[in-house]
Design a protein around this nucleic acid. Structure first.
Lengths: 339, 339
DNA sequence: TAAGCGTTCTAAATCGTTTAACCTTTTGTT
DNA sequence: AACAAAAGGTTAAACGATTTAGAACGCTTA
């Protein structure tokens, strides 16, 4: 019992293959009566429609969109921001009958999929530079999120401005301030920056956040040495814990700690509370992202709220529209109870 | 600048297309010297290898595996169990150079992808019965996880036995007991079961858990009326909260509450602690799954630990192996501090 | 010398569609 | 009535590979 093909069906119905194909794809190319007649007959004999694999080859279009994640899936999954982002993407894709191919950015090539995928949504700068260049060299559409790729449309929030604003709200003149940063330098473990060279500063959102913090610090008349800036290689609790301990045990302890993500800030808060430090009396903390958990803590976190779902949805819409214009999404400063 | 094809390359090198194809796919079909000569020449002129779309059509194999999730992606993403499962699947697929197509089970058809996908991993029973029958009727390999599909290999743990054991550990003769269940009946919101007809009892893991609980209850000499069994439509906090409130406010209050997932149990624990109920003095609670968060609460949760990552990995391995034998994975009873 | 055999490569069929180009009718216009 | 345009189909050439059957070649063996 082989699978039916267009040809088989055409033969059975006594019409050309083109007509069958048109019945399925281009209703304007044949009379309505013939069309329904054909479709009914197909249902009758069990032909479910043109073979997708053949369609992909012929049309050069597969309805598959690759979502390239900067980090390995292992990290992605534990990160609520990435999580909800995927949600948003998938929602829009589904509405448009597109399919989602999940692609981890730590793979070192896209050659396996570039031939059949309709486009790429790229979430976060690939760790792996080769992937960026490959993405840029191929001709399928690309939408970048939370980083920039030359000549490609990007979805972003104004990270510099948002960071500036949350920092400005948290800082008082005369403060000692520390920063818990993310992917600022190339290091596999949590550490202070000192004078390590900054990583990939052009396209990285965390560097924009750093810029924003620095502007606010300068305006408030505060200086921050690079040994008061920590760097985490990934946005995961296990890296945050170590930074939190170190920064809280340093003496004199900072009055403010600016964290580049809520995951980091929450771990820090937890750690500080355990140590009996009064928040915000003795120490002020800011986060970034606005994940749900940050709103449930006590005291609840001062942070920058951005809608990851919306980001995902806009990214997908942008890709599908074929438009080439970047987009800056709104955010909201939530003062919370930690500053 | 059109893309190079096998034909172009063959013409340029003065050999047949078959030889080029063989150079890439079947090294044994030509001399080693010719092969390296060809591959080098290809690199030289910028031919990166056979077009995947054409390969898919011709070979009938795409290296794409569809992961069909029972729930919509929206729910999936917030569920750490599903999350880590995906992780496991993706890890094995990547190791084998396969790609992952994420497919939400609330879509009503697989016809869009069945033609080009190499197989399906199906996580949880699709809500939508049509999808099950479609999966069964098509001829591509299917591996089911946490439910059964006739004639298809399944990955599971022994839910009945595990539930029996955790319940047995929690129950004392003379207890009043309640159950917070999952997807036992067809209802869009949290409610007691009363005498609603049970749903899809054959293939559902939550029915196996119910069986296990019931065996333990019977052995301990406890009777549970169906109005002491709650049903949640999804494994999500928002549904759990309501059930938790209702069950805790009922009087007399139960001495033990058996929860079919950690998400539910944690919400219940939270709720009970807020109400000032002593755990486990006044109330014992059991969960199911062994998610990380359940180990971090205070008191920490009594639960059945199963490794979702491993489940995912085994599912993927099973699919790729082409084997047709089901598999029961180990689990571990963690007594915790809540019983 | 011719047959037999392994190796290396080629020609041509095939995978299942889509679609540009072309051919008939039918309809509308003057 | 004559002709253009539209409607409804058909033919056949792609799309870019894989793969079977067999040709050509050099070599051994009887």
């Amino acid at each position: 019992m082989k699978k039916l093909t267009l040809k088989d069906v055409a033969k059975q119905l006594g019409v050309s293959t083109a007509t069958i194909s048109n019945a399925f794809n281009r209703p304007d190319q044949l009379s309505a009566s013939k069309r329904t007649e054909i479709l009914e007959a197909c249902k009758e004999i069990g032909y479910t429609g043109p073979n997708r694999a053949a369609q992909i080859l012929r049309k050069g279009q597969s309805n598959i969109v690759a979502l390239v994640l900067a980090d390995s899936l292992d990290y992605m999954v534990t990160d609520p921001v990435a999580n909800t982002f995927i949600q948003g993407v998938s929602r829009v894709l589904r509405e448009n009958q597109k399919h989602l191919l999940l692609y981890a950015g730590d793979s070192d090539t896209i050659t396996d999929v570039v031939d059949f995928v309709d486009g790429f949504i790229c979430y976060g700068a690939p760790r792996n530079g080769a992937l960026s260049t490959q993405l840029n060299q191929q001709s399928k559409p690309v939408v970048t999120v939370d980083f920039n790729l030359e000549g490609r449309p990007a979805i972003n929030i104004d990270n510099e401005k948002a960071s500036y604003e949350i920092a400005k709200a948290a800082l008082r003149p005369g403060d000692r301030a520390a920063i818990l940063g993310l992917r600022l330098i190339d290091s596999p473990s949590t550490c202070r920056i000192y004078d390590s060279p900054l990583l990939d500063a052009e396209s990285s959102i965390t560097h924009r956040r750093l810029d924003g913090y620095c502007r606010a610090l300068k305006e408030t008349g505060i200086e921050v040495a690079t040994d008061w800036i920590w760097n985490l290689p990934e946005n995961a609790g296990m890296y945050a814990v170590q930074a939190a301990r170190e920064v809280l045990q340093s003496s004199p302890r900072p009055d403010v700690i600016l964290c580049m993500s809520d995951i980091i800030a929450l771990e820090l808060l937890q750690c500080a509370l355990t140590m009996g430090i009064d928040i915000p009396g003795e120490l002020r903390i800011t986060g970034f992202d606005g994940i749900e958990e940050a709103a449930r803590t006590r005291p609840y976190m001062a942070t920058v709220c951005q809608s990851s779902v919306e980001k995902g949805m806009e990214a997908a819409k942008l890709l599908l529209s074929g438009d080439n214009t970047s987009m800056s999404l709104p955010y909201e400063i939530k003062l919370g109870e930690t500053i």
